[in-house]
């Protein structure tokens, strides 16, 4: 079942188009990463899905309802972590979470458990104004998880988290998606999303330039595999003799060779034939960063409706 679907959704602010014809369909229980530069329309799309703003054009359906007109029951099924989350400085962490739990009609014992889960149990009785950025972010995550939401929207959830917490964070997310929660999160840090999200939606200037799972996006982009061969760079490049596109670094200790995915083995065999000239080989597959740069840099002429990729 589709948890979130938008059909050519668009939004104008004072005559300026910030979101244009975005069509996505997110199946239930999947984790989607919204990727895009600042001002690409990620937050606007989230606000439309939350029902905080109405789209100027197009149709949006979230959990079977139109979020702009859905009532209180609909919002009980949502969890949201805004970018730069703010709380009342004078309240303690525990009080803040209890307040949100009561507002969501959730047992306040769950609030205490969640504080423990995000690692704030020891700081629970400190005032929020003493919290670091990462602690606020964790408190924000805890309030978003209150009441086991069906749909979780996280705007830049990992900013301010250290690597350990980031890993824990993605573990929590995985546990939630396994239990059937749909997660939509946005991020700048692309590498951390890899292998942790099912789907990626790449946005640029308010348009959706690519949407699908990482594997199919990779295939579609046709980005080359980069092989770094260490050894005598001059001899190696002579031997390979222009069969592959190569770049020579300044220190000549290695060369980088680009080749299409389907010629990877051919290249590796050629390197193996070089004998002692090649001492080591690194194979680097195109990362999310490469994909992002590829998709965000290319001209948008072929339309944006890419929902068939799911």
């Amino acid at each position: 079942m589709t948890a979130v679907s938008t059909d050519r959704a668009g939004k104008d602010y004072n005559g300026r188009t910030v979101l244009d014809a975005v069509s996505i369909a997110v199946p239930e229980g999947r984790c989607v990463a919204l990727i895009g530069h600042n001002g690409a329309g990620k937050t606007t799309l989230m606000k439309i899905i939350l029902g905080l703003i109405r789209p100027s054009r197009g149709r949006v359906e979230v959990l079977g309802q139109d979020p702009a007109t859905a009532g209180v029951d609909f919002r009980a099924k949502l969890g949201f972590l805004p970018e730069n989350v703010a709380f009342h400085d004078q309240m303690t962490g525990a009080e803040t979470l209890r307040f949100f739990a009561r507002l969501k009609k959730v047992d306040t014992r769950e609030a205490a458990e969640l504080l423990d889960r995000v690692g704030l149990a020891r700081a629970a009785d400190q005032k929020v104004k003493t919290y670091s950025k990462g602690m606020r972010q964790r408190l924000g995550l805890a309030q978003a998880l209150l009441g086991r939401p069906k749909l979780l929207l996280l705007d830049e959830p990992t900013t301010g988290l250290d690597p350990v917490l980031r890993t824990e964070f993605f573990e929590i997310i995985r546990g939630l998606t396994e239990a059937g929660t749909t997660v939509i999160l946005s991020s700048h840090i692309l590498t951390e999303l890899e292998a942790r999200t099912d789907l990626a939606a790449i946005m640029r200037d308010g348009r959706l330039v690519a949407f699908g799972d990482l594997e199919s996006l990779r295939q579609e982009a046709g980005l080359p595999v980069t092989v770094r061969a260490r050894g005598d760079a001059v001899e190696l490049s002579k031997k390979l003799n222009g069969a592959f596109h190569k770049t020579l670094p300044r220190n000549s200790a290695y060369i980088d060779l680009d080749c299409p995915v389907d010629r990877k083995m051919e290249l590796l065999r050629a390197l193996a034939d070089c004998g002692d000239l090649c001492t080591d080989v690194d194979v680097r597959l195109p990362t999310l960063d490469d994909l992002y740069l590829h998709y965000s840099g290319r001209a948008i002429s072929s339309g944006t409706g890419r929902e068939d990729a799911v």
Binding site: R75, F87, H88
Partner: peptide, 14 residues
Amino acid sequence: ERGCLLLMLTYPVS
């Protein structure tokens, strides 16, 4: 301006 209201509006309160 602090951003508290935005979060509140996503809660099940009118």
